[in-house]
Nucleic acid binder design. Structure first.
Lengths: 152, 152
DNA sequence: CTCATGTAATTGACACGTCAATTATGTATG
DNA sequence: CATACATAATTGACGTGTCAATTACATGAG
């Protein structure tokens, strides 16, 4: 056994770069599709998806942030922009005067309905169709291993 | 043979989400490390790396953009910020009066020198060490398949 | 030479993300 | 109840990214 290297080898570094650059490129392409198909950013989509699935199409701001794994300030800024566009609304919370409830607006629901099929189709075309069943499985396991490792 | 589905299955979609969210989380963690270790963003690092490896520590702006795969306007904005911080300089190009040459400044070279080992260590700890040899290999193949597919 | 067209790089406007500070309200403790 | 501390959400400042427009120069056809 050799002692554990502290720095990655050239090959390891190459894989890292391919990994991170490919994910970034894919994110950009999917994002551009969503934008041109539906005038939504990935952030808009995540918010609308969460609200669409929520009880009464409404959610406490903090819960929403936790659900989609965003910092609260990021969500505040984003909700401000989405509110200006009429996609969502904000109401005072009855049980906690500090709180706010985010409500899916009619326009938001409609835009989301129109966005979902094209978006899923894009995911299929650009991600799923690029991989064999084995590769898809491997991708899932790699992601799980990375996720588990990063939490420590 | 069943006809090809146009939408991903629930499992495929789950893998997609794990893939893209994990990559994003990893990018954020590595980025935060780089920031706190060396006061550099990933963009800064990419620019400084390219210039460090370039002939004479200088490069035409367009070539640099192509090398790191950025849009030129993005690079212009970024170079403006880096120039304000004294990390790089810009000079007129001798052979083409339209052109600009980006030059690694002394301060930039020094910051980069200090950044590289901690950054590579972070890549090793957070990415390489999380994966078995087989998983690392699989990650490379998945990235290659996705890259090949997206170019068409 | 000159005019049309292409290329190098920058700029402005605006969306997005992070961090630190702020405002307002809840809650526990003496 | 009063004070201290925690929590909900927002705000401001600033770095980052994209798109469309702009400036300045190069170059080839006539």
């Amino acid at each position: 056994m050799t002692r554990k290297r502290s720095l990655p080898t050239a090959d390891e570094l190459r894989v890292w770069r391919e990994y991170i650059e490919t994910a970034e490129a894919l994110r950009a392409v999917i994002s551009a599709r969503l934008q041109s198909d539906s005038a939504l950013s990935p952030g808009d989509y995540a918010v609308l998806l969460a609200l669409s699935e929520a009880e009464g199409h409404r959610m406490r701001s903090s819960d929403l942030a936790a659900h989609i794994n965003w910092e609260r300030s990021r969500l505040s800024h984003h909700l401000g922009r989405m509110e200006r566009r009429g996609l969502i609304g904000r109401e005072d919370c009855v049980t906690d005067s500090r709180g706010a409830e985010v409500v899916l607006a009619a326009a938001g629901a409609e835009v989301f309905r129109g966005a979902t099929v094209p978006h899923l189709r894009a995911v299929r075309e650009l991600f799923v169709d690029a991989l064999t069943a084995e590769q898809l499985d491997a991708a899932g396991q790699v992601a799980a291993a990375l996720r588990a490792h990063v939490r420590s």
